[in-house]
């Protein structure tokens, strides 16, 4: 008899993961286990995971650091809010423009990255982000300055008005697509070129990897994802302040990918949950400690780095290895 075997493909994993995320609002509606404010927290986390994924392409795969993620995300957020609210443009149009403009700037930074390395690049990108943030404060015409800019839930194709829950589904879909495309790219020729650039600049150029081209691609991909996250943010949270897009947020993204695991796609999402969602979802539930939830999160982040510097995503392998070792030990003892 012939057996019909369905091979488990990586894309199925991402889709299943997306379905699991999408179920959370339903749980909120039909059970008391999940609160509805949870959706905002988890939605925010998913948005930050999208931007962090871009940073992982840049730092994890290509070895190029950036502390500019927050600035690019903010720029996209303001642009999209301005175009949909003030100019009355369709969501789709403003999405495209709001992604394109920051990406052009991101590519410029990629050009700079040819000359500047390491810590210098980190601070240079921080400077770019600061230029953007100061501009958000001053350019009231678009950003409404310190008072903050408001936006609406997205309207798709001009007539499908989304609400909070459906915007959440949209965000989850964007994340799943981003994960899928990132996975495909990073496991092919482009991803290998990134890896080569990070691992050995000399080997990369000897093998014909044109480092200018791939640096620009890496910065473009990272900025595209940061901008997508910015657009999703402003249409989900429906508000943006200049102070949101500061150094702290860029460092948060860095923390997400380092804690979750460099070059790990699921790890990025895990990292986003730890940095962004854990204080709101869990730490605040601990009696007497709710005031300290963010302090505890800081402690948690430091602990993870100290005791698990390779990223929490690897914890699965390590538990498995420990289990095999234990079983072998028991087996040997039995003899």
């Amino acid at each position: 008899m012939k057996k019909i075997k369905i091979a488990f493909k990586p894309w199925m994993g991402f889709v299943l993961f997306g379905i699991a995320l999408a179920l959370i609002p339903l749980l909120a509606e039909y059970t008391t286990f999940v609160k509805s404010s949870t959706i905002i927290t988890i939605g925010g986390t998913v948005i930050f995971a999208i931007a962090a994924l871009g940073l992982n392409i840049l730092l994890g795969y290509s070895g190029l650091i950036s502390l500019g993620t927050a600035g690019f995300m903010g720029l996209a957020a303001y642009l999209s809010a301005y175009m949909t609210v003030d100019l009355g443009l369709p969501f789709e149009v403003s999405l495209i423009v709001a992604v394109l403009v920051p990406t052009l700037i991101g590519v410029l930074v990629g050009l700079i990255s040819l000359k500047i390395e390491g810590m210098y690049l980190a601070i240079a990108t921080l400077a770019v982000s600061e230029i953007l943030r100061k501009t958000f404060e001053e350019f009231e015409f678009i950003t409404n300055g310190f008072s903050g800019k408001s936006a609406r839930f997205p309207q798709l194709l001009g007539f499908i008005q989304l609400d909070r829950a459906s915007t959440y589904y949209l965000i989850v879909v964007v994340l799943v697509i981003a994960m899928l495309l990132t996975y495909n790219m990073m496991n092919g020729q482009v991803g290998r070129a990134f890896n080569a650039m990070r691992g050995s600049e000399s080997a990369a150029s000897a093998m014909g990897v044109y480092s200018l081209k791939y640096r620009l691609i890496a910065f473009a991909l990272a900025t595209i994802l940061a901008s997508l996250a910015g657009v999703m943010y402003v249409h989900f949270i429906r508000f943006a302040y200049p102070s949101t897009w500061n150094l702290k947020l860029s460092l948060d993204f860095l923390a997400m990918i380092v804690i979750g695991g460099l070059r790990s796609i699921y790890g990025t999402v895990l990292g986003a949950f730890i940095v962004f969602a854990i204080p709101d979802l869990f730490l605040k539930q601990i009696p007497f400690f709710n005031q300290l939830s963010y302090v505890l999160n800081g402690v948690l982040i430091i602990e993870v780095i100290m005791f698990y510097p390779s990223g929490l995503i690897n914890i699965g392998f390590d538990i498995k290895r420990l289990w095999l070792k234990l079983r072998k030990g028991i087996h040997d003892a039995g003899k």
Partner: peptide, 16 residues
């Protein structure tokens, strides 16, 4: 070589 990649992936870089 790129330590974090498999041997096969390292060889594939040669076909870049």
């Amino acid at each position: 070589l790129i330590r974090e990649l498999s041997i096969l992936d390292n060889v594939l870089i040669g076909a870049h």
